[in-house]
Nucleic acid binder design. Structure first.
Lengths: 138, 138
DNA sequence: TTTACTGCAAACCGTTTGCAGTTCC
DNA sequence: GGAACTGCAAACGGTTTGCAGTAAA
């Protein structure tokens, strides 16, 4: 996923150690970390990194469309690096785990009834339920 | 909508002026107020009402399932009194207006692909786009 | 009269900001 | 060398909490 860093450089970003580390932490599938979790993990790789820089960097990544903000519960925002494939979220009502599910024509259909004249440009779905682990424990 | 007050009394609620006023403010269709907006409007009817009481009352209404919490953007939670009919939300990307659209079997279908073993119990959809007013202005 | 509810103020959490100092290019 | 970035600490908005006083039943 270092092509993310290349894309950022192409966009005129200065590649600092802090930004490299934030990008590194966000690497992977089904990653939905809070800013604080990003800060904590980034701090393991680069102890001096500040919260402000993590927030700045996350904000910039979101503005560039490289990372998505997800707010599946009322609490802290989560940052989702899977911005290249449209998807929805499966959220465990017990342990709060989040998984990505691909979007398709079916999930992205507009509502069947009255749309009050809105011109819909995006559909965002949160599926809530029990993940396999929490089903087993129940 | 005073049957809401009756239901609350049936559940052992003390009917105070403050609670009556909060219920009054939440009355209507397509109502999605923030706690602060509820406080402001409640204050027009009962000037001494405190923010803490508004928060307490909203929290209790949510716990009782009479009001839904909606977080369509990263900012303040909104309170939706339309808890009796399952529905989704249409959100204007420009002016933030919210409208309710009824849920049905089509909108509530599980994702077609891999669900990672989740047992899905709820589907929550946010449709984003331009409302008629904002289309006209654009 | 009792106990639930209210209002106040302080604390809280996640996030944003201003600014002086640092570092990438 | 200069603009862009970082870290700090203070401020912020939304929400929660502890507690003394008040009022519904």
């Amino acid at each position: 996923m270092s092509d993310l860093l290349e894309r950022l450089r192409d966009r005129g970003w200065r590649l600092t150690a802090q930004r490299r580390v934030v990008a590194e932490v966000l690497n992977g599938d089904h990653v939905h970390l809070t800013a604080d979790e990003v800060h904590e993990r980034a701090g393991r790789l680069l102890p001096e990194i500040s919260r402000a820089t993590v927030y700045n960097t996350l904000g910039e990544l979101v503005a560039l469309g490289e990372v998505l903000e997800v707010s599946t519960d009322g609490r802290a925002k989560r940052y989702d690096p899977n911005a290249r494939h449209r998807h929805h979220h499966l959220v465990c009502t017990n342990c709060r785990t989040i998984r990505d599910v691909p979007a398709d024509e079916t999930t992205d259909a507009p509502p069947s009834g009255d749309c009050f004249g809105f011109r819909i440009s995006d559909v965002e779905i949160t599926y809530r339920g029990l993940c396999p682990d929490c089903q087993a424990k129940a």
